[in-house]
Design a protein around this nucleic acid. Structure first.
Lengths: 186, 186
DNA sequence: TATTGTTATACTCTATAACTATA
DNA sequence: TATAGTTATAGAGTATAACAATA
């Protein structure tokens, strides 16, 4: 599995930052030959790595993530925040435990996210109807508005990221990827 | 970008560990309904997330990474270690700076990896022929043997991960993924 | 002045243990 | 006894600043 870095490139763009050009995939690579840099770059051979599906899948995912970060910056939403918001939007009253199972997040790591989204006034917790341990999560009106905008942006962003693909190719790609990560055909 | 966790699931399986079943993708999700757990799991709707290419690409990449970690455990190689070893194997005398550019690793983060691989007797540093600042990296005989085994394992592992795909489908998938992460057609 | 390799370090993400309230 | 939510914390990954040696 080729290491292209940027796996955790979903840093929150909140605090003041030094270098964050948005160019995540090529963060530090290819200096651009500023001054008298050696032009004799012998072109490193990475052809074998590029033959691996894992490498290509990761590069593609990271490309889309990088675009996601740029487009979602106005909403201050990381991928995981958008995912949580989406699950709550489409499943009103869902519990934290259910979100963890659906998105494969560990419960301790979800706590802070929910807390932050609540603090931003985007989600609300209501007592669970049958289980007093649990809490049902709902979007506030503000949360619904933000999510609607964010989901629209996500959809547009996906189309932007796949502009080199025809509609049929995108469908094929999605289907084949699902066949990989689901063990069985689908 | 759906958060499926496990982005940095490439933890080194060196020290003694508690829970590491290898089941990375479903680390904590779906408890399996051990005892009297509620069977009324209302099936969280994630259909929108599943329509996003970013989600599917990430899931597929994580699936292959998880398999990679299991199959490469005997060699004690993380994806990034294998990538570095591969680049050195295919580009004898390559410099650290070139590896960083090719694999998109930041120089400070490569230092430890090279140091570790050197300590394991897998790579050697030789003075660069024309630049006394740089060092050319080479595989030792032991490194060559290990890399040969690891690369064979990687190739087998890829076939294993894509056993649900025909040869043609795998070719199509790879081509389409490249079209995504390269801006232009390819 | 710029680049290579490096150290030190901060921030983020991921994972485990353990606690409480409830089932 | 098991589960939902939580706290605290350890560990791994990723990022920047700054330095000495060399170009």
């Amino acid at each position: 599995m080729p290491e292209t870095s940027t796996a955790n490139a979903m840093r929150r763009p909140r605090g003041p930052r030094k270098k964050d050009t948005g160019d995540v995939l090529l963060a530090d690579g290819a200096p651009g030959n500023a001054a008298g840099a050696p032009v004799d770059a012998p072109e490193v051979d990475t052809s074998y790595l590029e033959s691996l599906l894992g490498y290509n899948a990761r590069r593609a995912a990271l490309t889309i993530i990088a675009l996601f970060l740029r487009r979602m910056a106005p909403f201050d939403l990381r991928p995981v925040d958008f995912s949580v918001l989406t699950v709550v939007a489409h499943n009103p009253g869902v519990t934290s435990r259910q979100i963890c199972a659906a998105l494969d997040i560990l419960p301790p790591n979800l706590v802070g996210m929910v807390k932050a989204l609540h603090k931003r006034g985007l989600i609300e917790r209501q007592p669970h109807p049958t289980d007093r341990r649990a809490q049902g999560l709902h979007l506030t009106p503000a949360g619904q508005r933000l999510h609607a905008q964010a989901q629209k942006t996500a959809t547009q962003l996906e189309q932007e990221a796949t502009h080199t693909l025809t509609r049929g190719e995108l469908q094929t790609l999605t289907t084949l990827l699902r066949k990989v990560y689901r063990g069985t055909a689908a």
